[in-house]
Simulated assay, not measured.
Amino acid sequence: MSEATPVKLDRRGAVAVLTIDRADRRNALSRDALLAFGRLGRELVDDPEVRAIVITGAGDKAFCAGADLKERQGMSPDDVRRQVGLYRTDLGVLARSPKPVIAAINGVAFGGGLELALICDLRVAAPHAELALPETSLGIIPGAGGTQRLPRVVGEARAKEMILLGRRLTAPEALAWGLVNRVSPEGTPVVDDAIAWIEPIASGAPIAQAAALGAIDDGYDVPLSLGLEIERVHYDETLRSEDRLEALRAFAEKRKPVYKGR
């Protein structure tokens, strides 16, 4: 039976918040949840009023505990392959988003939950959050990008430590390793803290932000000479924007710029 609303959408000004609403299943990623992320992600990417997307989980215990293992029990190997494919297609919408995507990690982020956080551009963790990729202890490996994205964030040696030992990181450890960008203060809801922290994105120049993300992502694994050419192409996108002219006017008039995304 399909779930009605496994992922809820809440709009807070220019920030869209996507919440996995499966607290009874520790916000595990079901097929319906993955499809909902794809559908809502496409909607938000195309919405000119949205400047940033925050992903979180319902409650305060789990951001996402990974794949829904109860659902997996009735799957054949081919069913599992198709399910893993949804991580690439439907979560891939968010991974490729030209708008910044931020994980507000409100509890445990294990397995596919951490892989969901890793597709995000920035990660904010609650003080009690724990992060891990325990798949090898279950006879598999991270299959939704964990073996590729985690080394790019924390380095090869630390990624192997987490994956091969199934090591769990506390929020302060994850911050020290560079796996998260920020740990929220005690007593502050992580979503509220994340939204306040990204205010420069919500009020910023969306064309410039998209160009910066594109330059970083497109140039990450290429030789420097090619990366500089990629940067030039993306820089040129900003030169053609009205937002750039608005920034110059605002500087001359000693006021805060009002960006329209044009």
Results as ranks from 00 to 15, higher is better:
251 F>E: 12
223 P>A: 07
215 A>Y: 03
220 Y>I: 05
235 Y>L: 15
213 L>T: 00
217 D>T: 12
225 S>I: 09
225 S>M: 10
235 Y>R: 15
215 A>H: 01
215 A>E: 02
250 A>D: 05
234 H>N: 13
246 E>G: 08
250 A>Y: 01
245 L>D: 15
230 I>P: 02
251 F>M: 13
235 Y>A: 15
213 L>E: 03
232 R>S: 14
243 D>C: 06
243 D>Q: 00
243 D>I: 04
228 L>C: 13
228 L>F: 11
214 G>C: 06
250 A>H: 04
242 E>F: 08
242 E>R: 12
230 I>A: 04
250 A>R: 01
219 G>E: 00
246 E>K: 05
228 L>E: 14
244 R>F: 12
228 L>P: 04
249 R>Y: 07
229 E>V: 13
250 A>E: 04
215 A>P: 02
235 Y>I: 09
239 L>R: 13
219 G>P: 00
215 A>L: 01
217 D>G: 08
219 G>K: 00
248 L>S: 07
216 I>G: 00
212 A>C: 08
244 R>S: 08
230 I>T: 07
241 S>P: 01
224 L>G: 04
234 H>Y: 15
245 L>K: 13
231 E>C: 14
242 E>C: 11
216 I>L: 11
243 D>R: 05
240 R>H: 14
215 A>F: 03
231 E>H: 12
235 Y>C: 15
228 L>G: 06
214 G>A: 12
211 A>T: 03
247 A>G: 08
234 H>E: 11
249 R>V: 05
219 G>L: 00
215 A>G: 03
236 D>E: 15
239 L>P: 08
238 T>A: 13
234 H>I: 05
232 R>V: 00
250 A>N: 01
238 T>P: 03
218 D>R: 04
233 V>L: 10
234 H>P: 08
225 S>C: 10
229 E>Q: 14
239 L>S: 10
252 A>C: 07
221 D>C: 08
240 R>F: 06
253 E>H: 10
223 P>Q: 06
249 R>P: 01
248 L>K: 05
216 I>F: 06
243 D>G: 05
224 L>K: 06
230 I>S: 02
217 D>Q: 12
233 V>A: 14
242 E>I: 10
219 G>W: 00
241 S>M: 02
251 F>S: 13
253 E>M: 09
246 E>A: 11
236 D>A: 15
253 E>Q: 13
218 D>V: 02
217 D>K: 12
239 L>N: 14
228 L>R: 14
220 Y>W: 09
230 I>L: 10
246 E>R: 05
214 G>Q: 03
243 D>A: 04
218 D>Q: 09
242 E>K: 14
247 A>S: 09
229 E>G: 07
243 D>P: 05
247 A>T: 01
